[in-house]
Amino acid sequence: MTNVIEVKHLHKAFGTNTVLDDINFTVQKGEKVALIGPSGGGKSTLLRCLIHVEGGYSGEVNFEGQPVNHASKETLQKLRQKMGFVFQQFNLFPHMTVLENITFAPKKLKIDDPKAIEAHAHQLLEEVGLANKANAYPQSLSGGQQQRVAIARALAMKPEVMLFDEPTSALDPEMVGEVLGVMKKLAADGMTMIIVTHEMAFARDVADQVLFMDQGKIADSGTATHIFKETTNPRTQEFLAKMMD
């Protein structure tokens, strides 16, 4: 098994506020990792460090054996192309159609010839159930539809790993299912995924590895069975009890 991501002794502070405190974990190819924990625990910050939109940390983040920190601008750009990121707020480009949202970066970065990129985009739209929305603008879509487009946009770069930061937290309850459905399909197809989520049932069903983050530390970790059934960590138990009711 190859490690896609290795995080070693990651430490990050905003001023005097330590947000990530000695974080260590590895993600293997095809593995699904769920990041759970209370608000402010540092989950988003960790994810943002992996893709280096958040810098200024110490320790090591390696992607496919290459260090992400200390990487040159160009290397970093290349590394980011291999990591898809899905935001809580979708962050679709409002001035582009759905199709343009998906094809813009692949075309700009010339990862394939334009015809192939467009064909791939249409195929992705098909997979997320939005084949008929190619020429719509994001503003005219529901939250769930926008998030599915955002997933397709990230996938269009043919990433090695997909990072999700609470992809369903900004959605109306009736739209959560359609997005989780797309993610489940992606998981079944073998994508390597790191998912920050408050959807405990989803984490339990999909994750190979669950990291429980609390106050900047990985306070508990293990398989889904371990975290959801066997853990003796009182903080984890307390958090899960709160999430379940």
């Binding site: 980011r80 192309q81 990121f85 935001f87 707020q89 962050n91 679709l92 480009f93 700009k108 970065l109």
Partner: peptide, 22 residues
Amino acid sequence: PVGQTEAGISLGLSERETMQSI
């Protein structure tokens, strides 16, 4: 919103391309 810049950068676009096109 900064999310627009972050979305561009996370796709692997350079800061300059993100500024220009997004």
